[in-house]
Design a protein around this nucleic acid. Structure first.
Lengths: 336, 336
DNA sequence: GTGAAAGCGCTAACAC
DNA sequence: GTGTTAGCGCTTTCAC
């Protein structure tokens, strides 16, 4: 590894001049500059990132922390964030927590070590403990979920999609298509977002005066495999259902493929409506009617807010709420 | 942000003592240690990553550079790598290049700035220019493709799955099931791996003396959408096919769903065999017969080799070749 | 137009 | 058992 000192030795110029030459900061004689650039190139000089970060106190990096790297839900968020970041010459560090709370704390800790200049955090569960830790952060954080019990002087931004509304829309769509025997598939109810989703379902069912009980509720973990298991349960359940409201596309895929495997026809035997509207919703047959959760905008706006804090040093807290949107495809049929 | 100096001021101890106390390096009086730890906690002290990296010349980070973050092919590689890294207290930076050569150079450059201690690189095209740049690297690199024209003294490791063999196996499986009218779907033929895959197809067809021409070859870009487009082409092609050999699961998904949408039955109208064996192969109906590309081992072993270089300072070049493996499911039928 | 020097926060060799 | 000191590689202010 070559350093500025090596170039200084080779060219006879001081490190300050060399720094000016290579960074276009401050004045430098064009001839001198040419000599220095040539030497740097010949020696295959590359600046040390650590040196630069230590001196400038800016890492030009942003952390993006998601629960699961394999979930297509995040793809468009990732795309949006990386697009916006590269416009600003920032890089991002992608990390995933597998819904593990201690992992979330680990990455929050890394941020405090100035591993990055800021962080966009996706969690299924912004519990009080986690939020408390976020409050202590020395670097800006954007959360992508509604956070209950926000305080006056909280300094993090929030961009979120209304999960309750999304599930309400989905459930209502089945109801308006004549379905009454509807079950719902959500994730672990100890997690905040799963509770939100379930409550969206409940509100719609109550609104239309349709009875339901715990037997209408199936618990998965947002993976394809858990969708398959739930398909078994649904098809063997004592209560018979014509419609399924499923919390995400991955579980829906698992449910659909398993039901088809067992000989059921979608949507004639079971109608299913999903949340997420990832590219997979349109990659299976029949294609999934799914509620778009505005992932691209979610990523884009959270990144925008974060960069405002980092670059423009904006203070305070902004909250942006996005509206989910129904996308109709082939997996729901009208009941007569 | 608090520094060691702040703790020094608060406790009266020197930064070296504090460093020893907090890092368990060298001796420190238990009482002193307790005082220091208490102060650090109270002040919410967090060590500066940049300072540590600059001093120690170790970043404890590894870059993992893949063409496409949305392709499930990489999921198990990512999982393997992150598992092994966390065992060794390393972190990884995930970056993606979207098959863009200039992006690949960008990340190689970042590595030279000691952005990380080493890199695992996946590229569809280890061309001479890229390999030349890898040769100049000051930090270890593991490539995950066969690299042609390797030199005696090349210092990077290689772990790869034999793509040629994989396509050979896939094609042969269709042939042994009685198919003769077989088309093949590959990626852009300017990329090395696409050429390899096509050549595997050709070898099998030649081996069994089955005629084919350019009309049997369809070019996509490894995405679901390109699979859908190709399904249109295949179903409208003058040559009629009973079997499709497709280079990856995503394109296969696109092909299957589009063919089903057009009313064809899989595998009765078209048999299809895929490469990758991602979780999606088993998440659609009918499930895909697919050749497992050993992604987990690929990630695991490349990470192992990389850490040997970083931690044990191993020199030289190791090459590991992995064998692809056929996984039979429902998407191929026997022709009578 | 260029150089000297200080300092970002940390660690470790060495001194006492 | 703890402190002193130097230095990792870079940037920047100030001096000449």
């Amino acid at each position: 590894m070559k350093t500025l000192y090596d170039i200084a030795k080779a060219t006879g110029f001081s490190t300050s001049t060399i720094s000016r030459a290579l960074n276009n900061s401050g004045y430098c004689n064009p001839k001198t500059k040419a000599i220095i650039e040539k030497a740097a190139k010949e020696m295959n000089y590359r600046p040390s990132n650590a040196g630069r970060v230590l001196k400038s106190q800016k890492s030009d990096r942003v952390m993006f922390c998601i629960p699961d790297i394999m979930n297509p839900f995040y793809f468009n968020m990732i795309r949006a964030i990386s697009e916006r970041l590269s416009l600003n010459d920032y890089y991002f560090l992608l990390s995933y927590t597998m819904h593990d709370k201690s992992e979330e704390f680990k990455y929050l800790n890394l941020l405090q070590e100035h591993y990055a200049d800021g962080m966009i955090m996706v969690s299924f569960d912004f519990n009080e403990e986690l939020v408390e830790e976020m409050r202590k952060s020395n670097f800006p954080i954007v959360a992508t979920n509604m956070i209950p019990n926000l305080k006056e002087d909280d300094n993090f931004d929030i961009v979120y999609v209304d999960h309750i509304k999304a599930m309400y829309i989905a459930t209502e769509h089945l109801i308006l298509n004549g379905h009454k025997d509807i079950c719902v598939v959500v994730g672990n109810l100890s997690e905040q977002t799963s509770q939100e989703r379930l409550s969206g379902f409940e509100r719609a069912m109550n609104k239309y005066n349709i009875e339901f009980s715990d037997d209408n509720i199936f618990i998965g973990d947002y993976t394809i495999d858990s969708g398959k298991l739930i398909a078994e349960e649904i098809s063997q359940s004592k209560k018979k259902f014509t419609g399924i409201v499923c919390s995400n596309d991955l579980m829906s895929m698992g449910i659909v493929s398993k039901l088809q495997y067992k000989g059921f026809d979608i949507p004639n035997d079971f109608s299913i409506i999903s949340l997420d509207n990832t590219e997979y919703a349109d990659a299976i047959h029949p294609s999934l009617t799914s509620v778009d959760m505005k992932q691209y905008e979610l990523g884009n706006l959270s990144c925008k807010l974060l960069l405002e804090k980092i670059i423009d040093e904006r203070k305070g807290s902004k909250v942006i709420r996005l509206e989910p949107e129904l996308v109709i495809r082939e997996s729901v049929r009208e009941l007569n």
